[in-house]
């Protein structure tokens, strides 16, 4: 197991380097720069030029890149020109928001997706199965934006149960924290629940048809034990992969959902940064989310091994 972890970490270094060069280069290909974006509506060319000089944007690109890389290696991710704060601080401020939202969405998705997936596989071709399939299709098809607005209309405007926007960290109390992320977590989790349900169902169908499940049944095990201990455990591998991928995606931010509910997470940070040519913020967010992605996939690898003893050598 430690060999896998070590190999993953070794792969990380070139991945991040290549990624940073690509992101740096792609951003500079966009017309306009941070100075133009910052200068405002009635800016004179002199002002734009002076801002360019002030922030070092007039230097050759390789010099700017190496300068940035040097700072990053010393733990300094740079400064947001638009939001007037160190990039490291912005990321630290937003990590709890994104993490809380991602965890809650994933828990919601797993709870709904796994249960309905297993039930519809076990009750194949019954009305339970059909109902679950139709719900999953709806879940995948509904746009986040629409679902979010509808939930605000019902639960905030109509019923007044949940706040329409804003973020309260869990550290300020379990219920206020949950309340502020409940609707966005459901909005984000719905599509993922549907995807997990469909994958769980097909994986379960495969394992339920396999020889060892027939053997288990033949040994006279209860159906409950057959499904949970034998079939589900083997069906989990693809679901773990999927969960890791989806969780990684959630951690890189959810721009639409964050905007609807005014949650200051990674998604809002990076999209605004791209529009405003806030280069160091974009680079910082990409770097950190790439790290998280690799880390989550590492956890998934460990998860496979725990779920499937055959991978343990």
């Amino acid at each position: 197991m430690s060999r896998i972890i070590l190999r993953r970490l070794m792969e990380l270094v070139p991945t991040l380097l290549i990624l940073s060069v690509v992101i740096f280069g792609l951003q500079r290909l966009l017309p306009g720069d941070a100075a133009l974006a910052m200068a405002g509506e009635d800016a004179t060319p002199e002002l734009i030029a002076s801002l360019r000089a002030q922030y070092g944007l007039d230097r050759p690109l390789p010099v700017q890149y190496l300068d940035w890389l040097g700072s990053v290696l010393q733990g300094d991710l740079g400064r947001s020109l638009r939001l007037n704060a160190p990039v490291g601080q912005l990321l630290i401020d937003r990590l709890p928001v994104t993490l809380q939202l991602a965890l809650m969405s994933m828990l919601f998705a797993l709870a709904i997706g796994l249960t309905t997936g297993v039930i519809s596989a076990v009750k194949r071709d019954t009305r339970w199965d059909h109902a679950a399939n139709v719900s999953a299709l709806i879940g995948i098809s509904v746009p986040n934006f629409w679902l979010g607005i509808m939930m605000i209309l019902v639960f905030s405007v109509g019923l007044g149960w949940l706040p329409a926007s804003g973020f309260t960290p869990l550290s300020e109390g379990l219920w206020p924290g949950l309340r502020s992320t409940l609707m966005p977590a459901i909005v984000l989790g719905t599509a993922i629940a549907a995807i997990i349900m469909r994958h769980t169902r097909s994986a379960m169908l495969q394992t339920l048809d396999s020889d060892y499940v027939r053997t288990a049944r033949a040994k006279g095990l209860t159906e409950r034990r057959v499904v949970i201990r034998h079939a589900m455990r083997n069906a989990l591998t693809p679901v773990i992969t999927l969960t890791a991928l989806e969780f990684g995606a959630l951690m890189s931010g959810a721009i639409l959902t964050e905007s609807i509910f005014n949650l200051p997470g990674f998604g809002k940070l990076i999209v605004d940064a791209v529009y405003n040519r806030d280069y160091e913020v974009v680079q910082g967010v990409v770097l950190v989310t790439a790290l998280i992605f690799v880390f989550v996939n590492l956890l998934a690898d460990i998860g496979y091994i725990l779920a499937n003893p055959r991978l343990r050598e």
Partner: peptide, 18 residues
């Protein structure tokens, strides 16, 4: 002063009393 870029969302927050 709350920053809400989407105008629909601003109005929903007004109507919900937020």
């Amino acid at each position: 002063f709350v920053a809400l870029p989407d105008s629909n969302v601003r109005l929903l927050n007004l109507r919900s009393g937020d």
